[in-house]
Write a protein that binds this DNA or RNA. Structure first.
Ligand SMILES: NC(=O)c1ccc[n+]([C@@H]2O[C@H](COP(=O)([O-])OP(=O)(O)OC[C@H]3O[C@@H](n4cnc5c(N)ncnc54)[C@H](O)[C@@H]3O)[C@@H](O)[C@H]2O)c1
Ligand SMILES: NC(=O)c1ccc[n+]([C@@H]2O[C@H](COP(=O)([O-])OP(=O)(O)OC[C@H]3O[C@@H](n4cnc5c(N)ncnc54)[C@H](O)[C@@H]3O)[C@@H](O)[C@H]2O)c1
Lengths: 215, 215
DNA sequence: ACGACTTTGTGCACGGCTTCACAATCACAA
DNA sequence: TTGTGATTGTGAAGCCGTGCACAAAGTCGT
């Protein structure tokens, strides 16, 4: 079964974890991995690992496990890892600079090729090897650097306008750090990373455990 | 029904969104909000909003909507927002500094009270108003500042050791940015924010839409 | 060649989340 | 007081993801 059919979203979200786990095993010279081992390394259930991999059409060998190199290749292919997707960072403030300076993204195939900011002092300069442009130049930047992904790291008040500009420039994938609801067309993939919300969820659990302790 | 019973995790994750949406409405002088309006502002389905709010035991008025101030109070109470939860940032590199310098966390009730780092040049100094300590001092720091949440922004290779140290110091909530699997006891709440994985998920969709276009 | 052992692939049942649809309920005007 | 219009609260159905459990299928030692 399985094969190149539809891959569930939950599975897609775990594929990068498997890939990372495999990279940790590789140096050991090991040739195969069992679903159990992969499960331990990636922090998920072994049955889930097997079901996930079955969606790729990747077959392991019963009694042995999965061939390491082949599995890495298959997961990488499913994720489209052969391609590199250049990123533009919008808003080079505290967070934007940290992102631009991060080498891990380039290593994963997502080089930060350019940035845009409204700050006149930054426009025209190169920060951490990343050239900075004015927002008005976004369209040209997207074509020039073949930008595939836009990262929004501006204040929340500017986020929707930046998102609109990215969409207008033809960008189909956006990752936003701005704590606000963004509206984008259906064919644009939006992932919102909301750190304050993450903290509030932690706060909720802290709060509740205290309440329960008092009871 | 409902009341102070168990609140589903999915609902908890949306409560901060509602709170943010309500803060946007407040200045308008409006007294009540309908579930529909709240749904638009927070980007979720109206029925979901009503069901979520019903878990809080917060009752709106049929034909009218929810009283704004009362709703804000109730959601805030459910999230434990009365309390402030001091945070320690572990690893003051690119990302750690951005986090430490971010005012939004303090505003939301999560002040960055202290940081730890192995860099001898940083230990003993104050960066962006945050005092920096050596990892060995973590236990003392946690008691001294009544730390409730630990944020891990060290290289992945050090993340598990830092997590262990946080757990050892009695911290029950951890937010990690390190791209690695962390193991913590059951009574410790761990939220892993993996930006490279987020990008890879976007990459997957880009990859697939290209594939489909070719077919 | 064969049996013992290992590990995969998946059918199935379960639980949680989402969404629809609508009766119940309230405000308010006449 | 009664009718009208609006909006909530929730039962029920459907969907998706999880995890168990086990037959199928391979390896390996003898
Ligand atoms: N710093 C953090 O650790 C952190 C944490 C969580 C969330 N965030 C969110 O990330 C976003 C950025 O945070 P920050 O701390 O880097 O803010 P910042 O104020 O340091 O930086 C914002 C940058 O965006 C630029 N900018 C403003 N309007 C712009 C526009 N229209 N187009 C392009 N650039 C524009 C500014 O010039 C500035 O350089 C905010 O929405 C913030 O809430 C930040
Ligand atoms: N910078 C980013 O935008 C970004 C994006 C995604 C993920 N991350 C992840 O976040 C983490 C931090 O990234 P960064 O760019 O800030 O790295 P960095 O190298 O700039 O900073 C790491 C900091 O941690 C300190 N450190 C090292 N070992 C430590 C220990 N045992 N205890 C305390 N402090 C220690 C170092 O002295 C340094 O200051 C990494 O795991 C990285 O993969 C970063």
């Amino acid at each position: 079964m399985a094969g190149s059919g539809h891959i569930p979203e939950a599975t897609v979200a775990r594929l990068p974890l498997y890939l990372r786990a495999l990279d940790e095993v590789a140096p050991s010279g090991q040739v195969t991995v069992s679903s159990e081992e992969l499960a331990d390394l990636s922090g998920v259930n072994a049955a889930k690992v097997r079901k996930d991999l079955s969606y790729l059409g990747t077959y392991g060998t019963r009694g042995v496990g999965y061939e390491l190199d082949y599995l890495k290749f298959e997961i990488g292919r499913a994720l489209g890892l052969a391609h590199t997707w250049p990123v533009v960072v919008c808003g080079l403030g505290n967070l934007g600079r940290a992102l631009a300076n991060h080498t891990g993204f380039t290593d994963a195939g997502f080089p930060v090729a350019a940035a845009v900011d409204t700050d006149l002092d930054k426009i025209g300069t190169t920060i951490d090897g990343v050239p900075v442009f004015a927002p008005a130049e976004l369209g040209a930047v997207v074509s020039e650097f073949e930008i595939a992904i836009g990262v929004i790291a501006t204040p929340a008040s500017a986020a929707q306008a930046v998102a609109d500009a990215l969409v207008g420039a033809g960008v189909k994938s956006i990752m936003s750090f701005a704590p606000t609801v963004l509206v984008v067309p259906d064919d644009v993939e939006l992932r919102a990373v909301d750190l304050a919300t993450e903290l509030q969820i932690l706060g909720f659990h802290l709060h509740r455990s205290i309440e329960n302790a008092e009871t």
